[in-house]
Write a protein that binds this DNA or RNA. Structure first.
Lengths: 251, 251
DNA sequence: ACGTTAGGTATACGTTTGTATACATCGCGT
DNA sequence: ACGCGATGTATACAAACGTATACCTAACGT
């Protein structure tokens, strides 16, 4: 009962989080998002082009940003705000639901495969529902992750790391993985899951006709990763209960 | 003994594969690679900029390409030629080496964890050695995978699929995974490994001080994936040995 | 009532871009 | 010897770009 949907959320249907933004600034940010919607990269946008799309004077851009990178950062902040909180809530909701269904499940190597499957199924599907509701955010995000601007790349990288950290924390708290799993392994697992999810989100957005397939495949991928991590930890525990486990071979 | 290094390869140290390329064309391609080396995307290059870097007249570009996409495709073809063959050979060499060392290894769920670990260790390290030798290729490749140009994206996607297919084929032939693994699962596994490898290659190239760390982590990732796939297959086999095994839940 | 500041506009300048047309050079088949 | 196609160069031009300067207007504290 520790996790239920928050009660009376105002539910802002779009980017309405940070109020009191100058109207021009908003228009510019929206214009940027709009221009990126069909595959463009943030860094390929021009100052003038942006203003044109926003229906503003080119120079208005300068009132709010010095740089295109600055606009990019602003946009990413907004996106991050839209993603992090809600996604973690989704995870909690899914876990809470699976808590109710407390029937014993098939076990393997000490981990509850059944519950894992169900939680993965739910969270992955909730994730894609979320992607459906915020298409541009993922478009821009994943694109800029490997984009040309170092500033934006770093920001995105940080954002992904935060996201992975949320996953890691939630996995621990909800006990979705064996408690013996080393922290650094859980960290790597969370990172892999994050990257997988985001990459698949892009595919998902770009091939609307394969939505159900991609959802199923992604489920499988995440399950694969989680299982692998759990089993490997198990094996490691059997193999080297004594050795200092430092310094791999010649590398 | 079925797999040894091919005997007398001329070993072209760089892009010398397709001979008889007009000198201007070569210079342009090289210039593009050079300009992409520090984080630029192919699609962000200008026709004139390219010619300038190559020390040529802007119009020379038109002699060889109609479009920037055309140059991109040409470059990607060249890169693909450099990667596919050699990488598969590397895998064979590693597997052959592990065949010699035929000591029995710890088993888990019917798969040879020891041999798996070793093969992963070797192939991942060989992969990164290869990355060291072809930095620009990976830079450009991974970048353009999520880049703005649909043409290049598709080409890259196809290239990745081919690469994954090589992995899949080699895994089958070298019996690195339980023979019960369904074809479509092996396919997904190969895709995941491919994407993981390439993404890590980018990180690897951009953070030279963390080379050894990234190598170790990538090993872990691949091992995680492979183990997960193997175990999941095992579980599935136990769970539904009777059912028609079609149609999971409401997908 | 006044000055200051933020937000938005108008115009202008120099640069770079993509593209077009015309010209020079080399190799090569007949 | 001639022509011709392939390659590379020179020059030119319209468009788009980033940037700078100057002006307009509304809000606000004092």
């Amino acid at each position: 009962m520790s996790a239920t949907a928050p009660p009376t959320k105002p539910l802002p249907n779009a980017a309405t989080a940070a109020a009191a933004l100058a109207p021009g600034k908003r228009q510019l940010l929206d214009a940027a998002l709009r221009l990126c919607q069909d595959g463009r990269a943030l860094s390929s946008l021009g100052l003038r082009e942006l203003a044109r799309e926003a229906g503003l004077n080119p120079n208005t851009f300068y009132r709010h940003f010095n740089d295109l990178d600055e606009l990019g950062l602003c946009l990413l902040d907004e996106i991050a705000g839209q993603l992090r909180g809600p996604l973690s809530e989704l995870r909690y909701a899914a876990a809470a639901r699976s808590e109710l269904d407390a029937t014993p499940r098939p076990q393997l190597l000490g981990l509850d495969m059944g519950r894992g499957r169900q939680v993965v199924h739910e969270t992955v599907n909730l994730f894609f529902d979320f992607v459906d509701r915020h298409p541009h955010a993922f478009m821009v995000g994943v694109r800029e992750l490997h984009g040309p601007s170092p500033v934006l790349r770093d920001a995105l990288q940080r954002m992904m790391d935060d996201f992975a950290d949320d996953i890691r924390r939630d996995c621990r708290k909800l006990e979705l993985l064996p408690e013996g799993l080393a922290e650094h392994q859980l960290e790597q697992l969370a990172l892999l899951i994050t990257h997988t999810l985001f990459r698949q989100a892009l595919d998902y957005l770009m091939q609307p006709e394969q939505h159900t397939l991609i959802r199923a495949l992604t489920e499988e991928h995440v399950l694969m990763l989680a299982t692998g991590a759990a089993v490997l930890q198990h094996v490691d525990q059997l193999r080297l209960p004594v050795k200092p486990a430092k310094s791999r071979d010649q590398r």
